[in-house]
């Protein structure tokens, strides 16, 4: 749910990175944080455990620039991926404008991806959203590692809706900004329609 502020001429949108545990959601945000100019980003907040697993969420505010005289800000959030944090995951989806599903391309994580996507569907529905309609992008992450599922197969299993899909390696940064751009585009186009 975007926030259009005519008083400060700002528009704020919320994008949530979703996906199974250790798929690279936090790494996506860290890369964006590291590669963004200081004046375009706020502080990155990570509510994580001592072993650096996301406990509640990561948060990164980004200012992208102006459109038609309105400052465009995106608030990026990640959810905790581990299965047992489902109650927290639901909360982060409140008021979301767009979702990036980060899939772990490693063969061994195929089932985890499918399970997480089902979980996303359920949790979005619980917040009153339809996964068939919400701005949605899929990132096939970790393409630099061995023992991968092919993109064709991942696409067949995870991308029924045929939304934009991108290959990435969040550790090296490949595909990270492309993913964000694809998601931001869909969110802004949705706003254009008055969504």
């Amino acid at each position: 749910m975007s926030f259009i502020n005519y008083a400060s001429r700002e528009i704020n949108c919320k994008i949530v990175y979703y996906g199974p545990g250790l798929c690279g959601k936090t790494t996506n945000l860290q890369y964006i944080y590291n590669k963004t100019a200081n004046d375009a980003k706020g502080k990155m907040i990570s509510l994580a455990t001592e072993t650096e697993r996301t406990l509640f969420f990561d948060f990164l505010p980004l200012a992208l620039g102006e459109i038609r005289g309105f400052k465009t800000r995106f608030h990026l959030y990640t959810v905790p991926g581990q299965v047992f944090y489902d109650a927290s995951r639901k909360l982060i989806l409140k008021g979301v404008d767009g979702v990036v599903f980060v899939a772990d391309s490693q063969e061994a994580r195929l089932d985890a991806n499918i399970e997480s996507l089902e979980n996303l569907k359920d949790n979005l529905a619980e917040q009153g959203f339809n996964i068939e309609k919400i701005p949605f992008v899929i990132q096939y992450n970790k393409r630099d590692l061995p023992d991968l599922t092919s993109v064709d197969e991942l696409s067949k299993l995870l991308n029924e809706r045929k939304v934009p899909e991108l290959e990435a390696s969040a550790m090296t940064g490949e595909g990270v900004f492309e993913t964000l751009k694809a998601a931001a585009k869909l969110v802004l186009n949705d706003l254009k329609k008055g969504g």
Binding site: S2, I4, Y6, A7, Q127, G128, L191, G195
Partner: peptide
């Protein structure tokens, strides 16, 4: 849940 908050 899906409407924008608009501030004038």
């Amino acid at each position: 849940p899906q409407s924008s908050l608009v501030m004038y």
